[in-house]
């Protein structure tokens, strides 16, 4: 899937039930960034927004995480097609994802 501009968004712009693959985590505070990444909000992971607001709720790797909107703004994802995440994620983990935009 290509990551055209209209298919990418920051986490706080996503709608509930919408999901996407993280391609950038740009958080200044290293400790916070590391914590977020260790919990699964890191490049290449599929994330779904469960509930919008501040803080908002994400689903990543089968767990729910509450995150400040301030942080969610700094995480960019390339959106999946509607309904793509309703089915179990395809087992394409072995082949590299198009995550070359990662910084």
């Amino acid at each position: 899937m290509s990551t055209s501009t209209d298919a990418s968004a920051s986490l706080d712009q996503m709608q509930p039930m919408q999901c996407g693959t993280v391609y950038q985590v740009d958080i200044e505070d290293q400790a916070t960034a590391d914590q977020l990444k260790a919990m699964g909000v890191c490049v290449g992971r599929m994330i779904e927004v469960v509930k919008r607001g501040d803080p908002l709720i994400l689903r990543v790797l089968g767990s729910r995480i509450g995150v400040s909107a301030r942080l969610a703004k700094r995480v960019r994802v390339s959106l999946c097609e509607a309904g793509a995440c309703q089915t179990p994620p395809p087992t394409t983990n072995a082949s590299p994802q198009p995550s070359d935009r990662a910084t």
Binding site: D29, M39, P55, I57, I65, G66, S68, R70, L71
Partner: peptide
């Protein structure tokens, strides 16, 4: 204050 990052188990 540290922005919220919290698992909701």
């Amino acid at each position: 204050s540290k922005p919220l990052v919290l698992e909701l188990p």
